[in-house]
Amino acid sequence: MSSGVSSALPTDEASAIELRNVEIAFRLADRSEYRAVRDIDLSVAPGEFVTIVGPTGCGKSTILNAVAGLVAVRGNVRVFGAPLAGLNTRAGYLFQQDALMPWKTALANVAVALEPAGVPVVEARDKARLWLQRVGLANFLDRYPHQLSGGQRKRVALAQTLIRDPEILLMDEPFGPLDAQTRTLMGDLLLSLWSADRKAVLFVTHDLDEAISLADRVLVMSAGPAARIIAEHRIDLPRPRASTDIRLEPRFHALQRAIWADLRDEVMRAYDNAKAGPE
């Protein structure tokens, strides 16, 4: 299961997402360059659920931004076989930060996501209502983002992303601010939606349990700067999974231990780096 860095399942079709030899650097104010990640090789097959774990600041969001087409990269990014130029229009992206329009209600925020596709307003609103109901916010349709809790805002954003039915889902700690119970519920909801039409998912999380219970594969990143993917674990737990049951299985614990063994040193290193200040 733990096998260094390799590519995804061998398939005939092109990968939904494919990064080859990708390096991402930021230019800082003093004109120096900060190399956030390097040598990134990863691919997500159509219908595959891949999670990324890694210490804070290692470059997880940066990789999602690259797949979304929001940052410039060195190397190769392909989406369903085609080189990515500009925005990735086939992906839906759930940002780590709050990204809802603060001047729109929950309902309007979700409904507006259908406007670019030319869906009539009334129909868009009906669909939005349905989606907000699915994420448990039927009673909060008319609230503005500032009147919602962090977790509620995340769920509105989730509905906003899913209502467009994108082929690829990029999710950056979507359940971060939720309590453990709701988090499990949302995870199960996501899994059931996903198993219905098998999108390709690239999912970032801090929570190892969540990473394992959702994924087909878990990728572990090293601490930054110049972070890499240092390990890949195939999660061979049977599907469909109910996250509460699956967490009791011995196999789950074995995977958890194995991944944590890879991650622990990196987390410590990230912490030490941060304490030591810039080198």
Binding site: L87, T89, A91, D98, A99, V112, A113
Partner: peptide
């Protein structure tokens, strides 16, 4: 910029 990036990811073009 995050709100803008999100709106663009939702497929909005100049006018929207």
């Amino acid at each position: 910029p995050v709100i803008l990036a999100n709106a663009r990811m939702l497929g909005m073009k100049d006018r929207q």
